[in-house]
Design a protein around this nucleic acid. Structure first.
Lengths: 207, 207
DNA sequence: ACTTATTTTAAACACTTGTTTAATTATTGA
DNA sequence: TCAATAATTAAACAAGTGTTTAAAATAAGT
């Protein structure tokens, strides 16, 4: 257990890629091992089982998800600017890793046994002071009085779903890969304006 | 091949239930057969293979999805009323079948080989005249000029995602089943007001 | 009744699955 | 250098997979 992370990290990278695109039960340990160029046994030498490896990947993905929010929330900005920034960052990130949202949700639904603990994330969000900032804005009448969980839901719905619904949308409307990309670019602006208009109704004059 | 649909239909019902909760590769043909009380061979006697059965279920689910929209679009109502109605109907339906959205998206992503044809649905939507109604409203300045695909995305994002993200949201915010239900009830109204305010900005005085 | 067709089953097949065991190769530490 | 530890592999294991075959039970047709 020296710092020869090379192989261990390579396995995690490959596992992430395979798990994201195919899901837990949609792939095999041999498939992951092969894509690293190693034996199946070695995979179980580093991580104890397929399930344990999956949990690791899923947990890392969830951490990344929260990290992105925390980073923005922690900055010194108005809520409107934070809104814009977080939507832009989320779209940018998700365009790079389109399988991410579906992986997380399917992953959380898959493991009925292990019931991953997500409680730690709430604390991290609290430390950013975002909740207080919203409370203040709401008290001052600058922000619509909406439960913070609903706010979270609004953001995630409008950022994550457009990415994960690519096959459905482009299938129904018969549009090409390129057209879908343009669709997302337009949608990003729509979402920004809609959410800002809704959450901060006072300052709704858009030049 | 008489009209003794009993067994065939029972298999489809069971398959739908199992596929929805566990996904294609997350379940076995024996599991489905067992839940019907029949042999595995009989399942392949009616449907040729696991994959063929899955396609059937997925296609039926997609048809249901479009059917719901078509039914509302076809009615004689203002766009605002259609908006309200479709959101209410969608939330009502999805609360009954919470696995539905995740199943569809995961299902569409699973089968890279068969590439299900979704083109027929566009025609069905066109026959409702909803696109013309929107065009007219947009020309009259009553509706915001937004591409119809973006409109679709807005609706689906804000209806489907809140349901499919149950585990993630209630995990992060540490809320109970009951609290999550109340969250959804509140969210339904939020989504209605937000979308109407955004799409029909003129009539945004809410009593 | 009895022949034919349909529905259902038990058993087997060939293959894949996650995991383990024991042996081999590389790396380290003194 | 050489023993001890770590990394890696080939092979096997037992269980589970989708699918098929051939036989049995049931229903239908005449």
């Amino acid at each position: 257990m020296k710092n020869d992370l090379s192989t261990e990290e390579k396995i995690k990278d490959a596992a992430r890629k395979v798990f994201m695109t195919k899901g837990f039960s949609g792939c095999t340990t041999r498939e992951i091992a092969k894509s690293v160029g190693i034996n199946v046994a070695l995979l179980n030498y580093y991580f104890r089982s397929k399930g344990k490896l999956f949990e690791l990947i899923l947990e890392a993905a969830l951490t990344d998800l929260i990290d992105g929010m925390v980073e923005v929330f922690h900055q010194d900005m108005t809520l409107e600017d934070k809104t814009r920034l977080i939507i832009d960052k989320e779209f940018e990130f998700l365009k790079k890793y389109p399988e991410f949202p579906l992986f997380i949700h399917a992953g959380l639904n898959q493991e009925s046994d292990t019931e991953m603990d997500l409680s730690s994330f709430l604390g991290r969000l609290h430390t950013t002071g975002i909740f207080e900032q919203c409370e203040k804005a709401q008290a001052a009448g600058k922000m619509r009085k909406v439960n913070m969980i609903n706010v979270t839901l609004l953001f995630m719905s409008n950022c994550h779903f457009p990415i994960m619904s690519k096959k459905l949308i482009s299938g129904i409307y018969q549009i090409s890969e390129e057209e879908h990309e343009n669709l997302l670019i337009a949608h990003q602006e729509i979402v920004k304006e809609m959410l800002i208009n809704y959450l901060f109704p006072n300052t709704n004059q858009h030049a």
